[in-house]
Write a protein that binds this DNA or RNA. Structure first.
Length: 399
DNA sequence: CTTCCACCGGAAGTACCGGTAA
DNA sequence: TTACCGGTACTTCCGGTGGAAG
């Protein structure tokens, strides 16, 4: 009896192990953070970035760079690609060259941004406890002791500036005035082109010494990108041109987002593998599109603070009833709901902010409207994913 | 043309937490 | 141990506002 159970288990494990390598040869090649050796349709941008930064190898401070482009247009990939190459060359040239990369959406406080920059020089900075001025002091000190060219990449700076203003940017653009033996160059990456307008003019002119625009990819270019990666990521004969073309077309519809296209391809492959299919098909891609969207919602909803969940629930109930909701309606419903489960409700001011946060997370759509005599409020709507959101909400309501 | 609704959203402040340095 | 720091998650206060109604 036992042997039978083991046989079954063995078989499952064996089949699982076999199937794991059936579709993918090297899934890493499709990972969002992977930087490939070849970036199709970005030769221009690579040249620009590289020609600006090479002077670092001679110890000369390169101009600051501001990079614009929508999500998934290769901004981060190109920047890191050039910096990595330069880092290797620096060894041959015996040049003192280092770089820091900070995504200011993920690392979204002044302290942590500065700490990460300082850490890239090998400093040990505690997670908390120090004054920001102290972290800055240590960074400057380390730069002076080191004496090289430090390139600081601030990715998605529009998010940081919106939240905390441009004080840090101002400080960093002027840091060279305090330095004698070292130099610092900044590379700002943003997908919001308008964001520069609300920068301090001094910061704007300094950061924008050089500006590079990354246009969106079209379907054909996306196809080339996917093809290039698919060759490495998939086993032969597991994926067709048709499937790749389909992924490219889907992503092209969304402002030519290459990351999206690669995600689709990777998840489609995972689904095919799970289903023990021989090949990835268009059907798998369609499933992947759904799975990515559902997964995102589950993830976002599950990490929402309790009161944000209650507010979201209130919105869903009201939208189901009337097709839309306003801040006032939402607040009244939320307040009674919170009281009914023995919670002290938050203020309307705070709830108004929570609604904005839900909007930014893409769970709801809130637009400020003026209804004349009937006042000014936010019109809140929820897309066709309302049922998916509600499902996730029910599942994670008890934290 | 003026009123006035139903909010918006900035500013300042409070409480708390996890942490450091000396 | 004590003084202090930054971040989070709020509250309190309040001036501001576009446009339908009067």
């Amino acid at each position: 009896m036992n042997t039978v159970a083991y046989d079954i288990l063995d078989e499952i494990i064996e089949r699982k192990l076999k199937s794991r390598h059936r579709i993918f040869a090297d899934k890493e090649k499709l990972h969002p953070d992977y930087i490939p050796d070849y970036l199709p349709h970005r030769e221009e941008q690579i040249k620009r970035v590289a020609s600006i930064l090479v002077s670092a190898l001679e110890g000369v401070r390169p101009s600051n760079i501001l990079i614009y482009g929508l999500t998934g247009t290769g901004k981060t990939a190109v920047t890191l690609y050039v910096l990595k190459r330069l880092g290797k060359k620096a060894i041959d040239f015996d040049a003192r060259f280092k770089y820091a990369y900070v995504n200011t959406r993920k690392t979204d406080t002044t302290y942590r941004v500065l700490a990460d920059i300082a850490r890239s020089l090998g400093l040990r900075i505690p997670y908390t406890g120090l004054a920001i001025a102290e972290v800055y002091r240590r960074y400057v000190e380390a730069l002076e002791n080191w004496g090289g060219v430090h390139i600081v990449v601030l990715d998605e700076i529009d998010y940081y500036v919106r939240k905390h203003g441009d004080d840090l940017l101002y400080k960093l653009t002027r840091i060279n005035e305090e330095l004698e033996h070292s130099k610092v160059s900044l590379i700002g990456i943003t997908n919001d082109i308008n964001f520069v307008e609300n920068l301090d003019p001094r910061v704007r002119s300094s950061l924008g010494e050089e500006e590079i625009v990354f246009p969106p990819y079209n379907a054909e270019q996306l196809y080339d990108i996917l093809m290039e990666r698919a060759k490495q990521a998939f086993n032969p004969n597991t994926i067709s041109n048709e499937v790749i073309r389909y992924c490219a077309a889907l992503a092209a519809r969304e402002h030519g987002d290459a990351r999206r296209a690669l995600d689709l391809l990777r998840v489609a492959g995972e689904i095919a593998e799970r289903e023990m299919a021989e090949k990835v098909t268009v059907k798998h891609v369609k499933k992947a599109a759904m799975e990515i969207e559902y997964g995102r919602i589950q993830q976002v909803v599950s990490t929402l603070p309790l009161h944000a969940k209650l507010v979201l629930k209130a919105i869903i109930v009201l939208v189901r009833k009337h097709g839309h909701a306003t801040t006032g309606e939402t607040y009244n419903y939320y307040r009674e709901f919170a009281r009914s489960i023995g919670l002290e409700p938050l203020t309307q001011r705070r709830v108004s902010e929570l609604i904005n946060e839900l909007d930014m997370l893409g769970l709801v759509n809130a637009v400020v409207v003026n209804r004349g005599r009937y006042g000014k409020t936010k019109m809140i709507r929820v897309g066709d994913l309302i049922d998916v959101i509600d499902d996730a909400l029910e599942r994670f309501m008890g934290e």
